[in-house]
Design a protein around this nucleic acid. Sequence first.
DNA 1: TTTAAATTCTACCTAAAGGTAGTAATTGAT
DNA 2: ATCAATTACTACCTTTAGGTAGAATTTAAA
Lengths: 137, 137
Amino acid sequence: MRLNSTSQYAIRILSYIARKQDEHILSAHELSEALNIPYKFLTKIMTKLVKAEFVESVRGRDGGFRLKDDPEKISIDDVLNLFNDSIKEEQCLLGIGACDTHCKCAMHDQWMKPKLLIQKLFRESSIKDISKKGSKI
Amino acid sequence: MRLNSTSQYAIRILSYIARKQDEHILSAHELSEALNIPYKFLTKIMTKLVKAEFVESVRGRDGGFRLKDDPEKISIDDVLNLFNDSIKEEQCLLGIGACDTHCKCAMHDQWMKPKLLIQKLFRESSIKDISKKGSKI
DNA sequence: TTTAAATTCTACCTAAAGGTAGTAATTGAT
DNA sequence: ATCAATTACTACCTTTAGGTAGAATTTAAA
Ligand code: SF4
Ligand code: SF4
């Protein structure tokens, strides 16, 4: 019952870039060290973020990464979707799925509340929100 | 962001046994077919449930499984704990952990609400609750 | 006492997540 | 032109979750 590591890394990466990119462009080495993410694994995530057009890369010496869009335009849910890790409408607690109002497990209704809260949290939080000064990434 | 298959299976198994055990003892074959869980995988889960003393087994011909305790005494959280799948106090959204009130990510406070709701749901729901007639398992 | 239906044990297999290694390509600075 | 710092690409490795196979053990009934 947790986000997978790759999604967690991706959110922290984007958030860190958002916070620092006005000072200087961010290299994979800096990101790896600052965020304590294995370098080789980080570069793998970066190429996914580049292909998904969340960030754009500058190759060659003095290269690095910067956000392609404004950080308030990227929601957490957008990022999670890239890694198949968001909470979908049909998300089921017991893995049966496709139940309806007449036939459902006893936990279904209680499961809706936290589920909707999490969906809302992911959809309404942007990378800008979580990159605010003073907050941990 | 979901329960692992093994936990889901275990909850459904216990719930099914709770509902049917007054009629007859439940064999692995019946459970496997009724719940659509691969037979060999189910028997593996059953031995864990036996060792954890959620169910007791009757070996040999006409054997099977029955609950060891009253179904209202087994909470969903108890079951999830057996499979390292419950939501812990320190459960973190971004995987950084060990943050405090002064230093936390921007999502921490919003994450508390759904997290507490889910904890409550798991702790206050028993196998009896979810095995009620008319509800899917 | 044999048989068949059941659980239990040990060992293995497969797929996915998480992570690593090495090399090629790009590019600014010297 | 060369070099060093950088991203991009391809391929592999390790761990964990999920699942399978087969034989051993137990027991009620014929
Ligand atoms: S009723 Fe229960 S089993 Fe059915 S879809 Fe909802 S959570 Fe899943
Ligand atoms: S503040 Fe954020 S990163 Fe820190 S423990 Fe809470 S959820 Fe995790």
